[in-house]
Design a protein around this nucleic acid. Sequence first.
DNA 1: TCTTAGCACTCCAATGTGCTAAGTGCTAAA
DNA 2: TTTAGCACTTAGCACATTGGAGTGCTAAGA
Lengths: 346, 346
Amino acid sequence: MLTDRELLILQAIVQIYTSDGQPVGSKALVSQLPMHVSSATIRNEMATLEEIGLLKKTHSSSGRIPSIQGYRYYVDHLLKPDKVQSSDLRQIRSSFNHQFQEIDDIVAESADMLSKLTSYTAFTVKPELKDAKLEGFRLVPLGNHRVMAILVTDNGDVQNRTFKVPSNVDPEALEAVIRIINDELVGLTLSEVFKRLATDIPNQIGKYIETPEGFLDVFEDVLKKSATERFFVGGQLNLLDFSKQHDLGAIRSLYRLMNHSTDLASVLGSPDQNIKVQIGNEITNNLLKNYSLITATYDVDQHGKGVIAVLGPTSMPYSKMIGLVGAFRTELARRLIDYYHDIDDS
Amino acid sequence: MLTDRELLILQAIVQIYTSDGQPVGSKALVSQLPMHVSSATIRNEMATLEEIGLLKKTHSSSGRIPSIQGYRYYVDHLLKPDKVQSSDLRQIRSSFNHQFQEIDDIVAESADMLSKLTSYTAFTVKPELKDAKLEGFRLVPLGNHRVMAILVTDNGDVQNRTFKVPSNVDPEALEAVIRIINDELVGLTLSEVFKRLATDIPNQIGKYIETPEGFLDVFEDVLKKSATERFFVGGQLNLLDFSKQHDLGAIRSLYRLMNHSTDLASVLGSPDQNIKVQIGNEITNNLLKNYSLITATYDVDQHGKGVIAVLGPTSMPYSKMIGLVGAFRTELARRLIDYYHDIDDS
DNA sequence: TCTTAGCACTCCAATGTGCTAAGTGCTAAA
DNA sequence: TTTAGCACTTAGCACATTGGAGTGCTAAGA
């Protein structure tokens, strides 16, 4: 069990180190602490904190910096989120103050905004579609045997994809197929749609089209697209600033990671209600073991839940960041609820 | 006028420097030249070449490196394009050997491929659409007063955008508008379409919709999208490798440049038939004054012309790069002609 | 007149040295 | 338990030293 003074020292070291990046020595710390003790005393306390594993040194005579466990302890027990600066709040609100035509625009804009506010790299994930219902499916002939497939879900998402149909498929058959899909699939949730596509639908369609597989591929493609295109990244370049390692190979892999939606999905993980802080090697992905990740869900009522996240150095100012992420997610949720409100009512 | 020996020396220096990156000294050069002369002779020749402005030193007692003019002279008079390696050619062809559904996929893939082959940053630009004709325009109602506008041009390009219509617009009015557009605009070139949109079309539409401006905006948006989304970039991260300057600000601006289509348009310039090499400050954009840019057009017959480009260090191996770019553009053109062939015939 | 060996000179890059500032651990006294 | 004092460690910086690769110049030879 830690004494009050040890807690104070740990807290001070985390705060100082995360704000100026320099290891904290005993003398410097004396002036920053509320009570008056000598530097020697601090040294002793530091030594015990190091023994416990909450602090470490960069070299044998250096000041102390928090270890992963030190950050962990700080985040779990000592931190209280900063109130977000009113200028930041104003900036968020004004950037949300546009007329957006599509959700994607809002969520993409959010990633940029969040990265600007934090000066780290930010991720945003659209509200999950799993429970969304298929609201409409259209095939629009574009001439020359090309067709655009459009899929609309009840939470306003629109996906499309063009493809070619074999020249032996006649327009009436296509009409019939659309009718089947509209009759059988519209109104179901997307996961149910997937199930049906794997079971009875191919047979029904097979009556009209000789090789239904190709056609179903298109349908699945569009569905998959709406699953994979949920991820947005902002401030990718900021990584260059806060990533001290100048190992180009590592940075390159990171960029690849950030642009690969399935990898991102596994990193951002399954949303729970709280703001989650993962520090260093606590992050599942090995590439990120020298960074910290703050994730939070946002809740758009009946339209599902999405995720926002900030990736920065382990030495980030956690209290500020957590405050910011917390404020941002409520603003984003509010904006999206507005958006859906407009759609539903019009 | 340069003597044969001076030419040989210039050529050798460019080749050595572009392959190993080290300034070339007189002694090292002796062993690389076909004839036998002493290092002192080389030194004399180098001095005159420096006087003319084709070589320069990095410091007073360093070996020589080519100046911008030196590269220029080399590229204009001494270089002959390398034959492209058969492994590279195989790689290009195999990557083109897929079934692509959209031109964009082919052109985007090209940018990646070209950057991989060169290990520099590559740009590809879709064939120009200016003379393309509007082949079809559709408005597809998606429910909840949302509509998707789809625009098809005769060279196979498909653009789309969803938007909301005011709730006081009734479906029949929309039908009427589509009919007007199909009757009046389909078949015209895009530039003619733009003209009509600025003149008489608003009046005609005004009969059916109270505020035609919003609607026309959408139309223009879609047209603009097809103009701005012509640019693809591959291997952006390679910039980190070959850009020796570790000035993060500069790199950041470069990334911004690469993702800003109008800036890119001005950098890549107007295509002419030859492969064009711009070296250092010959490039119009100041940010690129420490790089070299190789641009080439590719010709897809009646479907227009596009551009490919490679951005690398001024000390790039020009003969290899020019050979590669030359081969690549013919392969790309061939692949696109195939693509259009499939569309037109089906 | 062109080429070449020889030599003095220049500069970079690597290495080593010395110093300082900031830090530590330990000990003994308060 | 706290503190002052002291010996010790290390990073970081400024500075000097050195070796090597290169140059330009000169004078002699072809």
